[in-house]
Write a protein that binds this DNA or RNA. Sequence first.
DNA 1: TGTAATCAGGTGATTAAATCACTGTAAGAA
DNA 2: TTCTTACAGTGATTTAATCACCTGATTACA
Lengths: 223, 223
Amino acid sequence: MEKTEKMEFLSQYADFWRHLSDEEKTFVCQNTEVVNYHPGQNIHSADSQCIGVLFVKSGCLRVYIMSEEGKEVTLYRVSPGEVCILSASCVLSEITFDAYVDAEEPSQAVVLNAFAFSKLIEKNIYVENFSNKMKAIRFSDVMWTMQQILFFSFDKRLAIFLYEELIKNGPIIRYSHMEIAKYLGSAREVVSRMLKYFENEGIVKVSRKEIEIIDKKKLMARL
Amino acid sequence: MEKTEKMEFLSQYADFWRHLSDEEKTFVCQNTEVVNYHPGQNIHSADSQCIGVLFVKSGCLRVYIMSEEGKEVTLYRVSPGEVCILSASCVLSEITFDAYVDAEEPSQAVVLNAFAFSKLIEKNIYVENFSNKMKAIRFSDVMWTMQQILFFSFDKRLAIFLYEELIKNGPIIRYSHMEIAKYLGSAREVVSRMLKYFENEGIVKVSRKEIEIIDKKKLMARL
DNA sequence: TGTAATCAGGTGATTAAATCACTGTAAGAA
DNA sequence: TTCTTACAGTGATTTAATCACCTGATTACA
């Protein structure tokens, strides 16, 4: 990616861009690169040294937490046009928990490395505010997830998940039961059983790594 | 509270203070007042019009979410020296969920009203950043709570709660089982039963509205 | 001061969901 | 082809939440 292209791109994503000096803009460009990730690839974890801020161009990232036993709960997803801030958590003093980030699909992102980002935060209040604003947005996302898990019964949550997928990508959903379980903070067997129940109800048709929604109305009745 | 006293107080709490113009400082002082709350009093809720930012002087506030059925889960507490930002959530566009704030003890806070705070956010990037930074700090608090609820078994969470209270306020804990249940995102009966179990183990002594920790070692063994 | 109302807590039964242990089966790799 | 691995199905068990109902203590107030 060329410098002018980078500048064009970043000015779209980052509201701090117009508050950078020319020198800072050059510094940013020198410290960004385009990176590709393959499905299932881990991008950020507790132990791996952290890479920085990701401006997602294409694909989809999944941000999640993990228990000591390896149980995962998805916090939110990062879509094209959005920013992954927790992949820079090592340089963010307010973030005291360990988050993980995986690519869920083939994904491309423009990465501003952690060191450069922390330097900019120190120097420029607009960058610091951008960083904190991104956290605040994800705070609200996590609260949505938390309320789903704590307040909604499992059948309802699964129905909501299926409905959202239906809206986003049409009636055929290509996730394994395991992936859905991680997304909903549940267990694979629980997902399998509930899907089978939904199948008996005539809501979905289940086959290996594929769920087809065959009755949208019945699904919506469960929301 | 006098103006000079207010200015002295706020300069301690708010890192944006030194970035305010004299005019803005006066504006802040004109829009703050000292408010007292009694135990159990609701300070902020989804429907009540929101009051603004609370700089807590004394006592303790509890921030929580509530389900449609009225089930509560405590997110975190706000102690003296800390700031309650969610009580200004109506003027914070990044906050999209409904939080509730109650006083847990007799509490006193310096309140900067929501209107003035939003005006300052618009005008002064340092105030905006302060607002977002406070959210980021609470984001981490909530993540801690979320991990506790999702990853730890109930007996362990209760043990952690008792241990924290022991460290903070000594071996006698004056919460009802209901209050503990709300704090832990569980049900009263569940708390009662587990406390009785802990009592049989010789960890605590339970009586009305009072739990005494009689064996710290045994308690710590459950953490 | 007596009585009703409210609050704190106890208990058994039921249900929901997570966990465990194990089986079968389809898809890829060697 | 056969071996391996990922995906899914299922019964049994355990944990925790929920429901229904009860007892006893405290408070309000007439």
